[in-house]
Design a protein around this nucleic acid. Structure first.
Lengths: 183, 183
DNA sequence: AGAATTTCGGACTGTGAGTCCAGAAAACCG
DNA sequence: CGGTTTTCTGGACTCACAGTCCGAAATTCT
């Protein structure tokens, strides 16, 4: 099963010129049949989720493990910025995979991972801004995540912006939104 | 051809419980064959674009026609807010259609309409914030549009927020971002 | 070894976008 | 008007891809 994920990872990693990656492609690359593939992961979404969850794990752990700048010792406001930067970097590093998943059937915002990110971010924001209501913090979390939606990231890249510049803009945006929320 | 659009509009308008709307559905509803449908609009995307452009026309005209609050006589900052509110309202009123289009193949940000909106908004923001660089204004435009992405709007609705509340939150966000851009 | 059970993989099905072409309708000509 | 050419129509067909099924192969049990 790790072999399947590795094969899929290889395909998505090298996905530049290639068209969309099908389940048959992955089965072939992993040297197994389609039936086996679908038994291991119930659906295409299931496979993509498993793969990207594996690659996302470091971010989760950094937040939960508690080492600064993501960990709980850093100032709350900077934790928000650091978290968003970590997620954005993850997306920049895995965009073919992320895009494949977000294009897919069930809306990306109903994903387990989106819920987790939104909730984590909401909590961080609430922490940073004691004056904000729960609804405000939740909304701010949604909006800041929307600002790093894969479609937008790819559009910015296509427009010639460097990843570093995107990260800087995004950090500035986060600080601006945070500055306002408590009002 | 107007008849086809009307039929499609009816389907999307009543699309609540129904599953996805296929091209065959639309052909049947319009009382024509599939070939004719594809000759009139080259592709599914073409049809959806034509339909939603028709419904979006009032917004375009309000901006270009120049009546306040969208028109050029209002203060620039409020024009930004009014424009975003108009687009958001349009999306709220046509979400099944918009969703069908954004789920579709080619990324929604490469759409003619997205380009138009982003450009119009960039210009309005540049107008409102003489201190901002072109890049900053463009980025702010992207971000404010991302905040009214259909997926997010539907998620907020599903979370129990009323359309009015979403519009208020969004207006507040726009003002917050505008307050910051010139820095 | 031989029976029972689990797992494998590729042939098969279902669905929906997009194509094709035989015939209907229309336009043109004498 | 009758015939001929051109244009238009619509439904049968193709194609790609996710997901299912079942006979064969492997594994475990006795």
């Amino acid at each position: 099963m790790a072999r399947i994920l590795a094969a899929a990872d290889g395909l998505f990693g090298a996905a530049d010129t290639a068209g969309p990656i099908t389940m048959d492609d992955i089965a072939t690359a992993a040297g197994i049949g389609k039936g086996t593939l679908f038994r291991a992961f119930d659906s295409r979404d299931g496979l993509l989720d498993a793969l990207s969850d594996a690659k996302f794990a470091p971010v989760r752990e950094a937040l939960e493990g508690g080492r600064p700048p993501l960990g709980s010792e850093a100032p709350a406001r900077e934790r928000v910025v650091a978290f968003l930067d970590a997620v954005l970097t993850f997306k920049l590093d895995n965009r073919h995979l992320i895009r494949a998943r977000e294009v897919s059937s069930t809306g990306a915002l109903r994903t387990e991972r989106y819920r987790w990110m939104q909730d984590a971010l909401r909590a961080l924001i609430a922490d940073a801004m004691p004056g904000a209501t729960a609804g405000d913090a939740g909304y701010a979390a949604h909006v800041l995540l929307a600002a790093i939606h894969i479609d937008l990231v790819e559009e910015l890249l296509a427009g010639g912006r460097t990843p570093e510049r995107i990260r800087r803009s995004q950090a500035a945006l986060a600080r601006a939104v945070l500055a306002d929320v408590p009002g």
